[in-house]
Simulated assay, not measured.
Amino acid sequence: MASFAFISVLLAIGMGEAFNGDNFELECPDECDCHYFRINWVTDCSESNLTEVPYDELSKSVYILDLNGNNITHLKRFPGDIKMRRLQIADNRLTKVEKEAFAGLEYLIDVDLSGNNITYVDPESFV
C-alpha cells in the first residue's frame, strides 16, 4: 500500500511539472483571463484595451492566444519557445505584418488577422 502511495506521489509530481515533455508554466498576463479548454491552455486577452501584445507575460504553454478587439498597432517577434498553435488578433489596428512577426513560432497553424487595416504583408511572414 505504501509503494502505491509513493508511485501516486511521483506521478502527481511528474504531471505537475511536465506536459508533453515540456516545463509547464501557466503564466497569465494581468489584463487577460487564462483557463483550460479541454487540455489546452488558453490566454484570452480579447477586448482588454491592449495597445501591444504582452509578450513577456505569456506562458510558454499557451495553445490559443486571443487578442481580438484590442488596439494593437504593431507585431514584434514572439518568443521562440512558445508552443502557440492559434493566434486570434482580429479587429485591432494592424496596418502591416513584418517578416519577423511570426518567426520562431514553429507550432503556429492558424492566425486570424481579419478586421484590421492591413495594407502590407511581408511575403516571408508565414514561411
Rank of each mutant, 00 (worst) to 15 (best):
G14L: 03
R86I: 15
E57Q: 14
C34W: 03
L11A: 07
T119G: 09
T73C: 08
C28S: 06
I72E: 05
L50K: 11
P29V: 00
T119R: 14
S59H: 06
G16L: 13
N117R: 12
N92M: 06
D110H: 11
N117I: 00
V111G: 05
L50E: 09
D30A: 11
D91G: 03
K96C: 05
L11V: 14
D81Q: 11
L67C: 01
R38S: 13
D30C: 02
F78N: 13
K76M: 14
K60L: 09
N71R: 12
C32S: 06
A101Q: 08
S59V: 08
W41L: 05
E31I: 00
I13Y: 15
M1F: 02
D56F: 00
D44S: 07
N40H: 13
A103V: 04
V62D: 04
R85N: 10
L10S: 13
V53W: 00
V121G: 02
N116P: 01
I82Q: 07
C45L: 04
V53A: 07
G21T: 04
T95V: 04
D33C: 03
R85T: 04
A5W: 00
K99H: 06
D22E: 09
R86K: 12
D81W: 01
G80C: 03
L11N: 11
C34L: 04
D81G: 02
E106M: 09
G14T: 15
A2Q: 08
T119S: 15
A101I: 00
C34T: 02
F37E: 08
H74N: 12
Y107S: 15
I13E: 06
Y55F: 09
E31N: 09
H35S: 13
M15V: 04
S48Y: 01
R93E: 08
I89T: 10
E106R: 14
S46I: 12
E17M: 14
C28H: 07
F37L: 07
P123R: 13
N49P: 07
L113G: 14
I72K: 12
D81N: 15
N70H: 07
M84K: 14
S46R: 06
D122Q: 06
Y36I: 01
N40Y: 13
V97Y: 01
M84N: 11
L113H: 11
I64Y: 06
I64Q: 04
L26V: 06
